[in-house]
């Protein structure tokens, strides 16, 4: 069965590009505009991995990671942050909230897929 990945980004073009890349690689994709939207869309779906932007309206990525880690099904789920901030502070805050890794924008589709392979069988 194909893995379902959750992609959270407020930029529609990023969502489109990432979903296209992931679907093309055979993954199922759920996409959401921001943290709040993501939490609403999870809906008991079995998510194999979460890819989230950090800066978003309503609920940002770090808060989303924190909340996800508190949910019963997400204790061990890989969560990767998409970030333009290559500064360590954001990255560390994300890691402390429970993120598994990060990808720095801009990235190439193949780099995204390579990173996913680190976390999903």
């Amino acid at each position: 069965m194909a893995h379902t990945l959750l992609i959270v980004d407020d930029s529609a073009s990023m969502r489109q590009m990432v979903s296209f890349t992931l679907k093309d690689a055979g993954y199922e994709v759920i996409s959401a505009n921001n943290g709040k939207d993501a939490l609403a869309k999870i809906n008991n779906a079995k998510i194999s991995m979460v890819i989230t932007d950090l800066n978003m309206p309503e609920m940002d990525g770090i808060e989303l990671i924190r909340q996800l880690r508190g949910l019963p099904g997400f204790k061990f789920t890989p969560i990767v942050m998409l970030t333009t901030e290559s500064q360590d502070s954001k990255k560390m805050a994300g890691k402390q909230a429970g993120a598994s890794g990060w990808i720095v924008k801009p990235f190439k589709p193949q780099q995204l897929l390579d990173t996913i392979k680190k976390f999903v069988k």
Binding site: P78, I79, K95, G98, G101, V120, K121
Partner: peptide, 11 residues
């Protein structure tokens, strides 16, 4: 390490 969603076996 498990709590950050990383599976060492995949590494």
């Amino acid at each position: 390490i498990f709590l950050t969603g990383t599976d060492p076996l995949l590494l």
